[in-house]
């Protein structure tokens, strides 16, 4: 009897975590399905690179996306600069495909809002993603923050802000936090002009900080336009 009691107590104590775990898995699949509801889109974007060694003005352009991992930024005759492995840039790709293991991460707070935290481990170990931590606004079914640990590209943090395209789970603004390697070209090659401006010299020294930020503002989306894969192949 005592044993039964203990078992029941254990079960009662354990049950919520089991049900929550199931919730977390379901939550993940529901979120993933919702996100995958958008097969492709064309968005007018404004991209700001906030990288210490890069002085790039805000770039306006058109961002093309097609599920699952096609992406292209077009700037009218201009140069487009995006962090390498552009799959990092859409949420679709931060949500591992196929069967996954989901671990409940409890709750956290983002902008004074209680969010559900889940951790996702991909079923297959061939992909780049090792682990994704996802913060979800359960009420609106929106991903607000992800932390993705990759095999080759370090850890990528991503903040998502929503407004007009909530129904499609498409953000109005995304901020990526990326890790950077050092950048240095020998001065003899570039023959730099620094003038005698000490500020510039100091700034150049500070530029060793190895963190960067990429902010994409989505000004307007056109969703499910039927983009073909061929569109994304690089024109040589």
């Amino acid at each position: 009897m005592k044993r039964l009691f203990c078992l029941c107590l254990f079960g009662i104590l354990l049950l919520p975590s089991v049900t929550m775990a199931q919730d977390a898995t379901q939550l993940f699949y529901r979120i993933r399905d919702k996100v995958k509801g958008v097969n492709d889109y064309v968005a007018d974007v404004r991209i700001k690179l906030d990288v210490p060694f890069m002085k790039v003005p805000p770039m306006k352009g058109k961002l093309y996306f097609k599920n699952p991992d096609k992406m292209k930024l077009e700037r009218q005759g201009g140069i487009s600069i995006l962090p390498r492995n552009s799959f990092n840039l859409t949420m679709n790709n931060l949500l591992p495909p196929g069967n996954v293991t989901v671990i409940d991460g409890g709750f956290d707070t983002i902008d004074h809002k209680r969010v559900r935290v889940i951790k996702v481990i991909p079923g297959s170990d061939t992909g780049d993603i090792v682990l994704t931590r996802i913060c979800i606004d359960e009420a609106r079914m929106l991903v607000l923050h992800t932390e993705t640990t990759t095999r080759d590209n370090g850890t990528i943090n991503m903040d998502l802000y929503y407004n007009s395209y909530v129904a499609y789970s498409l953000p109005d603004k995304v901020i990526f936090h990326i890790n950077l390697k050092d950048y240095k070209l020998p001065k003899g090659v570039t023959m730099d002009y620094t003038g005698t401006d000490e500020d510039l010299v100091q700034k150049a020294k500070q530029a060793r900080v190895k963190k960067g930020r990429v902010q994409i503002e989505y000004l307007h989306y056109t969703i499910n336009t039927g983009l073909t894969d061929a569109f994304f192949t690089e024109k040589k």
Binding site: F53, M54, K55, V56, P57, M59, R75, G77, G78, I79, I81, Y183, K184, L185, P186, K187, V189, T190, D192, A204, A207
Partner: peptide, 21 residues
């Protein structure tokens, strides 16, 4: 070669200038 955004490689910085600038 036409015009376009200009990239300027400095020893400690990568500078991009917009075409109209």
């Amino acid at each position: 070669f036409g015009t376009g955004d200009m990239i300027n490689l400095k020893s400690d910085a990568f500078v991009m200038l917009l075409k109209d600038d």
